[in-house]
């Protein structure tokens, strides 16, 4: 566990030290706030628009964080950083899990900051922040874990530029499961069904009815799926020759 946390700590500290991240979060909050000005163009639907924009931007932030790992792992493999670390008493699985934990924590912090920022912005424009909106954002945060696992999976055997593209496409289609298939044996099992984290419309309309247990189980699904993806990645990685 110590080893995993050592790798994870290095990863999340790298991301969270980047000043550009906080600048981007600020830009995201400005964009969310600017949705208020669309009251005329949307015929008075700016409240819904603001919630929807916040969920959209938070999801994009989560996807970007997940995609960033597809640059980091292949880069470390290419430059030999991974070899240096793996020459220490660190299993390859530990390395991947450490990377997954690190990037997931960074993703959770970033999406969490966006959620808090959104609540502040929304609260300053409207009277109250509904619980359904927060639940929508929590689901987006929960989706960070399986998305990062997908990123880790592809990054162990696909070159860095290609793995970013493949990961982004995979995440996109995993969010579009409803358009592709309703076979739960394949989706949500072997292939990821990130649509399980998508209750954006329901959150935007503040329909309510999202149980806390649903969010919890969705996060558990994300963790279970991440175990599967990381395990498969680790198996492939264990046969890989390192630079």
């Amino acid at each position: 566990m110590n080893e995993v946390m050592a790798i994870a700590g290095g990863t999340w500290s790298r991301i969270l030290r980047m000043r550009a991240i906080y600048f981007l979060i600020l830009c995201v909050l400005i964009l969310i706030g600017s949705a208020y000005r669309y009251d005329v163009l949307s015929l008075g639907l700016h409240r819904i628009l603001m919630i929807d924009v916040s969920l959209l931007l938070n999801t994009i932030a989560a996807i970007l964080v997940a995609v960033s790992i597809t640059f980091e792992i292949p880069k470390e493999l290419r430059e030999g950083v991974a070899s240096t670390l793996l020459s220490k008493p660190l299993g390859r699985t530990h390395y991947l899990v450490g990377k997954l934990v690190g990037i997931s924590v960074a993703g959770l912090v970033i999406t969490g900051l966006i959620m808090i920022g959104f609540c502040l912005v929304f609260g300053s424009f409207f009277d109250r922040v509904g619980i359904t909106m927060v639940q929508g954002h929590l689901l987006v945060m929960g989706s960070v874990i399986p998305m990062c696992a997908i990123g880790v999976f592809f990054s162990v055997f696909i070159p860095e530029s290609l793995s970013a593209i493949v990961t982004a496409i995979c995440i996109w289609f995993a969010h579009s499961v409803i358009a592709l298939s309703n076979v739960p044996v394949v989706y949500a099992g072997i292939l990821p069904d990130l649509n399980l984290f998508n209750l954006k419309a329901e959150a935007a309309y503040e329909l309510g009815g999202i149980e806390w247990s649903y969010i919890l189980v969705a996060i558990l699904w994300g963790v279970a799926y991440s175990v599967f993806a990381t395990s498969l990645a680790s198996l492939i990685f264990s046969y890989k020759d390192l630079k």
């Binding site: 110590n2 080893e3 946390m5 050592a6 790798i7 430059e79 950083v81 240096t84």
Partner: peptide
């Protein structure tokens, strides 16, 4: 102890931070 032929380390870390990670890995 191992020194690779072209040592490459995480460029964003300071020397001490990198050694701290190594020390943690080495328990």
């Amino acid at each position: 102890g191992f020194l690779p032929d072209a040592p490459a380390f995480s460029s964003y870390l300071s020397a001490r931070e990198f050694l701290v990670i190594c020390a943690k890995l080495l328990r």
